[in-house]
């Protein structure tokens, strides 16, 4: 009996031995910065099964929420750089430094894939007494502090978009904070707030159903999801220097991860993001697929950080100057 057992153990050892030689030899942990059901979560859970097929391993995904993603980022940063812990996140860490939320950002991580980018737009309650960006600016200036803008805290998309807008025009509005664009868009429909800068994907269904109206599309070109809406740069070309801009989703590993592991992961996720099903899913939500890796991804991250950090700094909502961290002005 005993010998049989030993034999089984030995067989197990032998059977696992060849697997040890090649990555991945065990389950990979995927740490999602945001909660279940959110857009980061949905994107990661939708792309990963396609990548798993190429990778030939299993990625166990977990949500580790809180601190605008800082907790997940710190956790992955504390693990071994062996490629067995992936950070699945959004754009937020790129602003941690200037927002006073710690001293990490994605420069401590190696991008595996920058999956997609969102397009911001500004929506308003149907009863709002303005129908486009020009009218809104005029109305707001005529009624200072009366128009209520939804926001999602410092560094969130609404704060950056508002910073961008106020770099060209004056907008004396009241900001009502919400803990995400979902609840804020709900409040918009109920009339608790009048205007909300949001990512297109979150607002598109409400717009299509006529429950809210688009004030401006904050991009350089019209979007296929909303072909009738002209981009903001048509009337306000001054915004061209910041655009295109938008929140993004990406997968990262800690710096120092062996090159072959990074290669393998990048290849797997590169294939996964190309999957037709995934592409149609993500474009249906109004996101633009990027599928960047390697140097391309790195330069995308740097540009994003430089534009956004200076934007929020110039708008006066940053806690520290980007200069302190060596972030160049765009």
């Amino acid at each position: 009996m005993k010998s049989k057992l030993l034999g089984a153990v030995a067989a197990l050892m032998v059977a696992t031995a060849p697997a040890l030689a090649e990555y991945p030899e065990k389950d990979i942990q995927g740490i999602i910065q945001w909660g279940a059901g959110g857009s980061t979560d949905t994107v990661m859970r939708a792309v990963t099964p396609h990548a798993e097929e190429v990778l030939g391993g299993k990625v166990v995904m977990q949500n580790m929420t809180g601190g605008v993603g800082a907790i997940a980022t710190k956790y992955v940063g504390a693990q071994d750089a062996d490629g067995y812990t992936l950070l699945m996140g959004a754009e937020n860490p790129q602003l941690y430094k200037v927002m006073g939320l710690g001293d990490t950002d994605y420069s401590d991580f190696t991008p595996i894939n920058i999956i997609a980018r969102g397009v911001p737009l500004i929506v308003a309650n149907n009863d709002a007494p303005f129908n486009n960006f020009k009218e809104m600016v005029e109305y707001v200036q005529a009624h200072p502090k009366e128009v209520k803008f939804g926001s999602t805290g410092p560094g969130g998309l609404p704060s950056v978009v508002t910073a961008m807008l106020t770099s060209e025009v004056e907008l004396p509005v009241t900001f009502v904070p919400y803990d995400g664009d979902g609840p804020a868009l709900t409040a918009l429909q109920g009339g608790a707030i009048d205007v909300m800068p949001a990512v297109l994907g979150a607002a598109i269904e409400g717009v299509k159903a006529g429950r809210m109206k688009v004030i401006a599309l904050v991009d350089v070109a019209a979007n296929p999801a909303l072909p009738d809406v002209a981009p903001i740069t048509v009337d306000y070309p001054g915004y061209e220097k910041y655009l295109p801009w938008g929140p993004f989703f990406g997968i990262f590993v800690k710096n120092g991860t062996p090159d072959d592991v990074v290669q393998k992961l990048s290849a797997a996720y590169g294939e996964g993001v190309k999957n037709a099903e995934f592409v149609s899913l993500i474009e249906g939500r109004g996101f633009t697929v990027l599928n960047l890796s390697g140097d391309e991804a790195r330069s995308f991250l740097n540009k994003w950080q430089s534009v956004t950090s200076w934007l929020v700094f110039d708008a006066g909502i940053a806690k520290a100057s980007p200069e302190e961290f060596g972030i160049p002005r765009p």
Binding site: L12, L20, K26, D27, V60, Q62
Partner: peptide, 25 residues
Amino acid sequence: FSVLMPEGIVPEREIIAGMRSILSG
């Protein structure tokens, strides 16, 4: 439920991956 409890000294993920490869093999 795929809750990854701290592994400590037992290389659980290797064992599970090994078992899975045997099973599928």
